[in-house]
Design a protein around this nucleic acid. Structure first.
Lengths: 251, 251
DNA sequence: TGCCATTTGTCCGTATGTATC
DNA sequence: AGATACATACGGACAAATGGC
């Protein structure tokens, strides 16, 4: 076996158990590193490795010069049907929803955007970037792309707080639906992490979707990075019942 | 600034660039740690921190006593509609699909399973655990639960390689569909990581679903952990068109 | 089988930089 | 400015897994 103390994994598990049990409640501050070293009979290197692992799991948040805190993990269950809107989704869970525009531009469509929107490469599209919040906590970072010739004043209307659904309607698009939704996970990059209040390396869920009109023609494409430890997605394929599945059940 | 060498982040980025550029191709072995220290003028601690970060991003795979290798990242696009089967999904992408039974048991339903299946707590259910492979590489680790009184010989039939769809049909269930699918991400735990050939801390996508018959009654519940860096899910909400969205595009 | 070189994993001690209060 | 707390870095020792001889 080992000639020295315990492994960093043992320390990680002991602290993790404290958090899971609730003895260390969300947002509470952990003792300082020297103190933790005494409490768990660990040397600083090993203790820090344990803390780093817990941080990567999203259970802790380490703040330089301030201390180490237990992460609170509010959970947004984002229900995706054929027509889904951000606000309603969150409001129905008793959460406050808000958004913030990060950038707006008209840009020529690159090959990917052009193909997804059924436009020629180089056609002007609105590219709008927004950040979404639930209960003042950032949860998503999104980009949307719309044909600028079809929705000339889209950016202006969005800035005024008018929803995408209403803008569609004002263009005679009474009914639209999602063509498909693609979802995968990857580590947050250095741009996303601070905006989502994640540490680099924590996971985001990338959700890409295409809205189509009744004729099946694409009218908008969007993709968003969601804070992986604060959200789950539910895809409804039939009228909603009252079942529920729960996050963080061990599988 | 710093009194000593470069930061571990600089080393991480330099090696990461080598991988991204293809100069270090997938599955190739990196030089040993002492060699890398010389190449990048880093000390062992800092170098190892850089490697650990790249490993967490899924770009490298470090094998104790053997060496460090560039990770290959085959991508499975798993399309989920109302009726979806594992094999067809992979075969349509030119991948070979296979599965392996890990465990089979009849157990009393706990509160969650009972609620999801619409059974009383304690009712006997088949609990079957399987591992799925694409091109011989493990990609999923799943558990399924079915009412044992309704499908008495389910485990036996599954062992013989008979699909769930066929078993349903033999019980007069000609048509069934997913009620809902819930998906979220979390780090792989220590049980899952080796079975999915992931390192602890890399992300899995958890997919939970309930199958219902035409009357809307639940007939089966399953949940699976998918290797997060090897799979994406696409939810079709309308008849399939020929659009595509691509993984690993920077958002 | 066993020995041994190679390679990665863990741990310890220490010094100094940097952010916060 | 000083105290506290986290971040980075260096050096050294030994453990454990692998693979060749």
């Amino acid at each position: 076996m080992r000639s020295q103390g315990q492994t960093w994994e043992a320390t990680r598990d002991r602290i993790g158990a404290e958090i899971a049990s609730g003895r260390l409640p969300p947002d509470s501050r952990l003792p300082s590193e020297p103190e933790l070293c005494r409490l768990y009979d660990a040397r600083r290197h090993s203790l820090r490795r344990a803390l780093a692992a817990l941080e990567a799991e999203g259970k802790l948040r380490v703040e330089h010069g301030r201390g180490t805190f237990v992460e609170r993990a509010p959970l947004v269950n984002y229900v995706i049907g054929q027509r889904t809107r951000f606000r309603e989704n969150l409001l129905s869970q008793g959460l406050t929803a808000s958004g913030q525009s990060l950038s707006e531009a008209q840009i020529p469509a690159d090959a990917r955007i052009a193909r997804l929107l059924g436009l020629p490469v180089g056609a002007l599209v609105h590219a709008i970037s927004r950040r979404g919040f639930a209960n003042e906590l950032p949860i998503s970072l999104g980009w949307s792309y719309h044909d600028a010739s079809r929705f000339p004043e889209l950016a202006e209307l969005r800035r005024q707080g008018i929803s995408v659904t209403e803008i569609y309607r004002s263009h005679g698009i009474e009914d639209y639906q999602r063509l498909r939704t693609t979802i995968f996970t990857r580590p947050a990059n250095e741009r996303e992490a601070p905006l989502l209040m994640l540490r680099p390396g924590q996971s985001v869920l990338i959700v890409q979707k295409v809205d189509v009109d009744k004729a099946g023609r694409p009218i908008g494409f969007s993709e968003a990075a969601w804070a992986g430890d604060r959200v789950q997605f539910t895809f409804e394929t039939t009228p909603p019942y009252s079942f529920a599945t729960e996050k963080h059940d061990d599988v």
